[in-house]
Computed example of a mutant assay.
Amino acid sequence: MRIKRTLATVAAAALATTGLVACSNESEDNATTTAAEGENTTIKIGTTEADQEAWTVFKDLAADNGIELDIVQFSDYSPVNEALAQGELDVNKFQHIKYLAEYNQSAGKDLRVVGSTEIVPLALFWKDHDSLDGIEGESVAIPNDPSNQGRAINVLVQAGLLTLSDNVADELAPTPSDIDKDASKVTVTPVDASQTPNAYNEGRPAIINNTWLDRAGIEPGLAVFEDDPNSEEAEPYINVFAARSEDIDDETLNKLVELWQTPEVEEAVAKDSKGTSVPVYRDKSELNDILDRLQDK
């Protein structure tokens, strides 16, 4: 893997003057040397969230453990996985499992999960309302992107507002055509995710994810309903660290997962998400099983 290591000794400093080459395709025996053995490790990690407080806490904690984080901030989701696949990053943390599965399928790649971080419930908002009372007959704005549309429909199913037809191809990712309109209490209007806050501000009920809640200044506590983060339907939306398949057992990358799951980072994540994030501690093999199931579908 392409991870830089800097020896914390005078001899190492002397070697550095002649140029140290980053490791590539190392054997597992030589993969990662920890700070306890006298070395610091530099990890190049990609994200779209580097401006959040959790990343500052995470970077400082990693440094305390001999890991220097070279954080690469992306303004858009689409290039982050490709940068990882091409070896420009060692790991990334910006996506849920479903998004990773969709990338692998469309790009023909085999990026894998290193570990879990948290899940953020997806919620229904309705301006000037604090319950679902009176929502029957309304048209609910939902995100139209593949990663969120199915989940948004399932939020409304869990709320008892939508009923799916009997022949749904994928119950974890239903589409508007899978809705039994006659048996449902509301209809849906798919829109670009960025437009869901506009629907809310116009007085229409809307499913809004946390990214756009924050940008629109809408308090998460105003939700009238949200999905259950512990349900099977929510599993695809567990946020993860991802790496190339040959690197998922790397000690340093797995150490980063441990550090993200410490109370210090989780407290900062909760602050960034305004209390909506739910930490997830799932075995790596379970997470990759979920990834495989999503890709098979």
Score class of each variant (00 low, 15 high):
112 R>H: 05
118 E>F: 12
131 S>I: 08
114 V>Y: 00
99 Y>R: 12
96 H>G: 14
130 D>P: 01
100 L>C: 03
120 V>Q: 11
133 D>G: 04
137 G>L: 01
116 S>M: 05
86 Q>M: 14
104 N>M: 10
104 N>G: 07
91 V>I: 15
91 V>R: 05
88 E>D: 15
141 A>T: 05
97 I>P: 00
106 S>M: 07
118 E>A: 12
91 V>Q: 13
108 G>F: 14
136 E>N: 08
86 Q>V: 11
87 G>D: 09
101 A>W: 05
108 G>V: 09
127 K>P: 02
115 G>D: 00
85 A>G: 01
95 Q>H: 12
98 K>W: 14
102 E>L: 15
113 V>Y: 02
102 E>F: 11
99 Y>A: 14
89 L>G: 01
107 A>W: 09
104 N>C: 08
116 S>T: 13
96 H>C: 12
108 G>R: 09
107 A>N: 11
140 V>M: 01
90 D>L: 07
92 N>L: 11
99 Y>I: 13
105 Q>N: 15
131 S>P: 04
114 V>P: 02
100 L>T: 05
89 L>V: 09
109 K>N: 13
126 W>T: 09
129 H>C: 03
96 H>W: 10
135 I>Q: 06
124 L>W: 07
130 D>K: 13
136 E>A: 12
135 I>C: 02
109 K>Y: 12
125 F>Q: 03
110 D>R: 06
116 S>C: 02
101 A>R: 00
105 Q>L: 15
115 G>F: 12
118 E>T: 13
124 L>P: 08
97 I>W: 02
118 E>M: 09
116 S>E: 07
85 A>M: 03
111 L>C: 05
113 V>A: 01
90 D>F: 08
85 A>L: 05
103 Y>H: 14
100 L>K: 01
104 N>L: 10
128 D>T: 06
131 S>Q: 06
132 L>K: 14
111 L>E: 03
95 Q>D: 12
101 A>D: 01
128 D>P: 04
126 W>P: 02
120 V>H: 06
124 L>S: 04
131 S>Y: 08
114 V>M: 02
95 Q>W: 09
86 Q>I: 07
121 P>L: 07
105 Q>E: 14
128 D>Q: 06
135 I>M: 11
138 E>Q: 14
85 A>W: 08
93 K>W: 15
114 V>E: 01
134 G>S: 00
90 D>E: 11
106 S>Y: 06
92 N>Q: 15
98 K>F: 15
140 V>T: 02
